[in-house]
Design a binder for these strands. Structure first.
Lengths: 212, 212, 212, 212
DNA sequence: TATGAATGAGGATTCATTCAT
DNA sequence: AATGAATGAATCCTCATTCAT
């Protein structure tokens, strides 16, 4: 019925209310992915979640609040997965390589998730800001480690973030090559000031087999 | 009443009908800039143009057609200005430098134009494709001239285009530094495979005084 | 507020939703009767039903679906009444006499119902077909009983049906005589091949006192 | 461009203004036939006539007036053709046979004309009345000649007229048999009180070869 | 909590009609 | 007479939101 599941667990580990809320959020992601955030209708989300439309307002004040909650939760969930993968990685380059490739993998292998994230980033400045904060940590770490020479400011973050989202869009649109992950990382490292050869080498290095 | 003027000339050099159409298009750009293309309402566009709602349909079949016409015309107008500036420039790097800095200048100095273009690119894949075709010419020229080492494919174009749009968004959001133009060019050249120092040098070189 | 009641029962024997739906259907019949089906506006129907315009779409997908639902329900309701009256009548001539006179009585005594039915028949070929199927049963029965000599085909059904509707129109227009029922039956029987005298005799015979 | 021509002569025998008016009337018939009178739009009629929409109002006060003018002219034109065919026929039965068969022939061989006439009769009581006046003449003649036994009143006229229109509808809908003309006449004569055998004989008699 | 009918403002679109040229 | 752009009321329909159950 509802093929996409991120927040609603299979087992009934949550209370009924929390489960309904999670179903609504998963449904919202699927609908946002299909129609974009503005065009998504509360009725369609409720229908996709298998609940009555009125139930929506039991869990969210209005559509805007839900968009914000869902988008932030989506970003947090992605960040959680990336952090988990990089728990023990100290090298900033490694972290960038890992995070970016893993991010592209996750979001292009689950198109609803990828599209929803992409469209949410386009629609919600708050979300872009949040993502920027997250990226800035690793980039700042690279500066401290002396591997990134570019001065870190909002503009750089905006551009690096925009590059990754562009790559994601390209992947989701289906026109892009198979090695989009490494190529994106390579470009990203170049933007950060890593020299060309080092960027290429780092971007192509083997990752945990889980990661493409 | 309507501060933004791109298509509607001050003088009555067009017939009355053409003038009304141009007013609608200018109004559309202003409204697209404020609310995005999807959320723009025909009534608001007509009101902004100072005509009755029915008049919209004298000039455009429906909202979608107008969005497409306006966006393409907007892109064509920008391209026309850029081409004019670069009429005699042969060097691909020079052309990229010039086009990108000029583009950012034009579109961030006229926020309605910039926002409208940005949102149009997000909403209309056709427009993105058009813009890609335009950019690809100069990039291919650079490859022929031996200055860009990166292989040119759709993915590269998507990323380079995305980078420039990200820079524009950053500028329009008002958070970015004054040297966004040169910095964007520098990043762009790096993505294309120009080495770091040459990129920095080229991006900072003096342009025609008109260009910032 | 709404003088015509066919589907909405006085008592609250239906759920609230079903009652609203029935009110809309009754209102639709009244409006169809006044303006015809094509010219009837959803807003006017909703207003006549005493509900908000949006409520219309809670109960019907769109105007066309409602027109079809209402018309078929109207025809079914009329057919139900006729069938009830003729439950025990076997003779085809009797059935025709009874059905036609009763039909004219019902629909000319309740002009909204009559007009709505008439206009629905003009606008909806499906409804005409339905009515034709219904009429054909009794006519075929008459052929089996050897009292109708005319061969039964679509053209005959179309003509007999058209005759009855013409009679109804004449009644509703107010120009016609009091004995429209018997005269219509007589003509109808003649069309079916009953000879003139028998037709006149049968058409004038006494019916249940309820029936005029 | 405009396949249907009734009022606009090929040759320029009329003044320019009269020609434009005639073109509009022909176009109106075609459009009425396609969409019905209510749904026909002035713009579509003007377009079909090959003139600007404003021109419509040079020739007609408004849409209703045009509908009335066109319908009446259409009926008059048909009547003129029938009268021409029957100029020398005195026998009422002959006249009915001839008029009805010829009418069905004309209007089913030129579907735009047939549909327009049919829909006009449904929409405009005035037209129905006019047609009734015309039919009544021949029917009254039959009564004087002693061949029709049925008393002539509005109700009879309505029913006989309705029968012929039903037959036309059946023909235009394409479901009806080839001998619709004779069968319609036969039914019509029965309605008027002619006995069955005489009706059949008269209805099948040979007509002028032109007439089917 | 959950429901789902009801609401009514708002959006896209059509169209009869007017009027300056 | 003819034009065709302009008008704005009216139409169908959607949708976020509310509320009684």
């Amino acid at each position: 019925m509802q093929p996409f599941r991120l927040f609603a667990p299979e087992v009934a580990s949550l209370g009924k209310s929390a489960r309904t809320r999670a179903q609504l959020m998963d449904a919202a992601i699927a609908v946002f992915a299909r129609h974009g955030i503005e065009a998504a209708s509360v009725n369609e989300i409720a229908r996709a979640a298998g609940v009555a439309n009125g139930t929506f307002y039991v869990h969210f004040r209005d559509k805007d609040e839900m968009a914000s909650v869902v988008s932030l939760a989506l970003a947090a969930e992605i960040a959680r997965q990336l952090d988990e993968d990089m728990r023990d990685v100290d090298c900033a380059i490694q972290r960038i390589v890992c995070a970016t490739r893993r991010f592209l993998q996750i979001s292009s292998e689950q198109p609803p998730l990828g599209w929803a994230f992409l469209k949410a980033c386009q629609a919600l400045p708050d979300l872009r800001y949040q993502v920027g904060v997250y990226m800035r940590q690793d980039i700042a770490r690279g500066v401290r480690q002396g591997v990134f020479t570019e001065p870190v400011d909002d503009f750089l973050i905006d551009c690096v973030g925009g590059l990754v989202l562009s790559a994601l869009l390209s992947c989701l649109s289906g026109t892009s090559a198979a090695d989009a992950g490494p190529r994106t990382v390579e470009m990203q490292l170049r933007l950060l000031g890593v020299d060309s050869q080092a960027a290429k080498a780092a971007s192509r290095q083997a990752l945990d087999p889980l990661i493409g």
